[in-house]
Design a protein around this nucleic acid. Structure first.
Length: 214
DNA sequence: ATCCCGAGGG
DNA sequence: CCCTCTGGAT
């Protein structure tokens, strides 16, 4: 198992991330907890571009749980056919909207337990909503963060929960809020799954992998 | 461990 | 062609 980076190295690493991308922009800014929740549910095993392409027509047709419910599972599916797993996602968004209307007065709940109880919402999606919308210190570990954390030594863990805990335990407090965003961007554009661009990586010598591309 | 499942990249 | 993409439910 690779070495977990030390506290001083993590300070350096996240300082470099912050200098490269100070403000969390470049991501879609959602105007409601509901559109954020739906977008994240749709993002499973899909690229951000694919999600944007699907949410554009979907949110043009419905931006609230009530409107989504009226649109119906088939109507939802029609708008999101361009992304993978679209049948499951349409079903989940439809059922999830019904629960929000019937049990939460059309609002998105702010507890992890309530979020995870919604169809199509797992721990990762719940954590994104908690962190990104409710500004709570929850670390959503997706495929990017799991890979980047383990490859670089920023957050070592054999499974998603372990990496989540590693981030909470090791990433300096002042970087916790935006750690998710920076790690995502790093994984998406530099520390990619197949051909990581180690030559253009701001971590450089800090990375425990040191450009070995594995 | 398996299924879901389309688009884009290499 | 094969792999990967901000996973979740069974």
């Amino acid at each position: 198992m690779k070495p977990q980076l030390s506290y001083p190295d993590l300070v350096k690493a996240f300082t470099r991330f912050r200098d490269a991308e100070p403000e969390p922009k470049g991501e879609l800014v959602h105007d409601s907890a509901f559109t954020l929740l739906v977008a994240v549910v749709l993002s499973a095993q899909a690229t951000d571009r694919g999600v944007n392409k699907a949410t554009e027509p979907l949110f043009a047709a419905a931006r609230t749980p009530e409107a989504m419910l009226a649109l119906g599972e088939e109507g939802i599916a029609e708008h999101i056919k361009s992304i993978g797993l679209f049948r499951n996602k349409a079903k989940n968004v439809s059922k999830l909207s019904r629960i929000l209307v019937e049990e939460y007065g059309g609002e998105v709940p702010s507890s992890r337990a309530a979020l995870v109880a919604l169809p199509g919402v797992g721990r990762k999606t719940a954590n994104v909503v908690l962190n990104s919308w409710f500004k709570m210190p929850a670390q959503a570990v997706d495929t990017h963060i799991f890979r980047v954390g383990n490859r670089t030594g920023i957050a070592i863990g054999k499974d998603v929960i372990a990496v989540e805990r590693a981030i909470e335990d090791h990433v300096p407090a002042e970087f916790q809020l935006h750690a998710h965003h920076w790690l995502i961007l790093h994984g998406r554009y530099t520390c990619t799954a197949r051909n990581p661009k180690c030559g253009a990586c701001v971590l450089g010598d800090l990375c425990c992998n040191e450009g070995k591309t594995a």
